[in-house]
Design a protein around this nucleic acid. Structure first.
Lengths: 230, 230
DNA sequence: CGATCGTTTGATTACGTTCAATCGTTGTGG
DNA sequence: CCACAACGATTGAACGTAATCAAACGATCG
């Protein structure tokens, strides 16, 4: 495994809290693998046998409703782990997962991971940290959907894609707009129109490239008052 | 503490998985307390110092947005614990909590709880189970908001209030309709109107009392295909 | 009895969806 | 290499759901 991969792994909330040695023991046996775009990793309702670390690419987590609708809960990227909460209790996956770009993932076996945790209480604390992190994300997501308009949700997504907090910025949309729309809880048509509205706030979109005149202006628009981030 | 209280505590996902003795050790020092309606328990952003067990009454968890809007994330009832995920890492509460009816709560100190967990790995697993449970709840909540209409969300709430799965049923709404509306992601006016629409599906509402002609009919309406519940 | 709070009702508006058509890009097979 | 399908993205028009604004109603409590 590439040393750069270790950097990524240690940057996750899950593994960041533990010693490098410990992390290596946990994932040591598993090897990164390349996945094409559109590969199904697991399905909702299936027994949870493994969780994943994203080394590269993007993976969507979604639910399929009884009437066939797809609801995207999250799209994970480099440096994020997913499905780790599900492998506890030998439970089942509450949602499905699929790569949305060609990706490189590290698949960690749940059974061995679980037994290692039982040996080392400290690991459980790391898992709890990770679970809290996910919990917080979902809580914020609900707030987003409930109180923000479509243009605000997009603006929020955009500003989260860059580290710039003032002045101009350029970002690349990491995946298709249809998926982005779903992730943001709207239809592709609405995304398109909402994006237009943001032009009045200094946002121009050319294919997958988004140019922002002044990030701060956008931050104001989404009321990015996340003073409770940490 | 009343023996009935122990029944309640042991019925929680958090404490149910552990031996009674262990549970008693964990909460032994804390005593139940009565709270009036409308009492603030903690505020979002404040250091997480304790979590709670609901012995009686209802407690809402909500977030206040920068522009003063209130978003209710969950309303907890007897036999549920809340804020336990937040006390880890000595972090902060991601949301605020307030009683919405007169309540009896058991407040458990986070610091001591945390240190006990580090002594006993088994407890950590219980916590993880609980966290997974919350995670699943939020995931379902997001799906609810995204794909269900207002009447469907209400119908879903109603059928979850009873154990009856067919034939007639009568339930009492446990708290004000305004709060219920917020919890379901809508305005009080919309709740009122949506409730009217449900009359066509055999639901009549008289003050806080809801009468259902045939629960199954409602289940069909909400597409209650929760085959993944366990 | 009057005030207040929660709930309902009505009219209007706004936002996003739906349905439908078009355009552009990509990629493939002749 | 080009033509043509296939797909994603955009645009337009009509529709629907819930929000908003406003008023009236009802119950509860001092």
């Amino acid at each position: 495994m590439d040393p750069a991969d270790w950097e990524i792994i240690k940057s996750t909330p899950l593994f960041g809290a533990m010693a490098s040695q410990t992390a290596e023991q946990l994932v040591g046996s598993s090897l990164p693998r390349f996945y094409d775009k559109g590969v199904a990793l697991f399905h909702q309702g299936a027994p949870a046998t493994a969780f994943f670390i994203v080394l590269d690419g993007w993976v969507k987590i979604y639910r399929t409703t009884p009437d066939g609708l797809e609801v995207v809960l999250h799209v994970f990227r480099q440096g994020e782990t997913f499905a780790e909460a599900a492998i506890f209790l030998g439970g089942r996956y509450p949602a499905s997962a699929e790569t949305v770009t060609p990706s490189r993932l590290l698949k960690v076996d749940g059974e061995t991971f679980r037994s290692r945790i039982e040996e080392r209480p400290v690991l459980a604390m790391s898992m709890l940290a990770s679970a809290s992190y996910q919990l917080k994300f979902l809580v914020e997501q609900i707030e987003q959907i409930k109180v923000r308009s479509a243009p605000q949700r997009i603006a929020d997504f955009i500003v989260r894609m860059t580290r710039v907090r003032q002045g101009p910025a350029v970002i690349e949309l990491p995946f298709e707009k249809g998926l982005l729309a779903n992730r943001l809880g709207m239809k592709p048509e609405s995304l398109s129109r909402a994006l237009q509205q943001l032009r009045a706030r200094g946002v121009s979109v050319e294919r997958g490239t988004v140019k922002i005149v002044d990030v701060r202006q956008l931050l104001d628009f989404v009321e990015y008052a996340n003073e409770d981030d940490e």
